[in-house]
């Protein structure tokens, strides 16, 4: 028997569907205005179930960062960062387009949608003209 079709309203399904359409969207709580990451079924701040999907500005700041060291033959060093979005949520991601060692705490970054084996995902690039 085929597995049941995932509900398009399931938070994780919806998040990925937006990304597939080229939109980085997150839930915002109708009750308290909290921007929510990761997607879920209630507001982790106030408990409200009234959540509205809104396109994120994509602007953010590097809250912390690390270079994961890896041998060149396995792909070399790469960046992993925690980004604080302008609207408040924090998410793990990576900053692309610069050397891993050049990513610094406080750097202004902008979201772009990339893809990996599992489909579209949000990564960041240094903000245009934002310097650090």
């Amino acid at each position: 028997m085929a597995p049941p079709t995932p509900s398009p309203d399931a938070p994780g399904v919806k998040f990925q569907a937006f990304l597939a359409e080229g939109s980085f969207s997150l839930q915002v709580c109708d009750g308290c205005g909290t921007q929510i990451f990761f997607p879920r079924t209630l507001c982790p701040s106030c408990g409200s179930r009234a959540l509205t999907w809104k396109k994120a500005s994509g602007e953010g700041t590097v809250y912390s960062t690390t270079t994961v060291r890896q041998k060149p033959e396995r792909g070399g060093d790469y960046n992993v960062s925690i980004v604080e979005l302008a609207e408040g949520a924090r998410m793990m991601s990576r900053v692309e387009g610069v050397e891993p060692a050049a990513v610094t705490i406080g750097m202004a970054v902008t979201a772009v949608i990339a893809t990996d084996d599992a489909g579209p995902l949000v990564v960041f690039r240094p903000a245009e003209g934002g310097g650090a």
């Binding site: 990451f37 809250y63 912390s64 960062t65 994961v68 992993v80 705490i105 995902l121």
Partner: peptide
Amino acid sequence: YEMRYRPREPISSYAFAAARHMH
């Protein structure tokens, strides 16, 4: 939501805390 960015856990998580403390 985190594993796709390949942090080397648990080390990377503590590295984030260390980097922020240094900063």
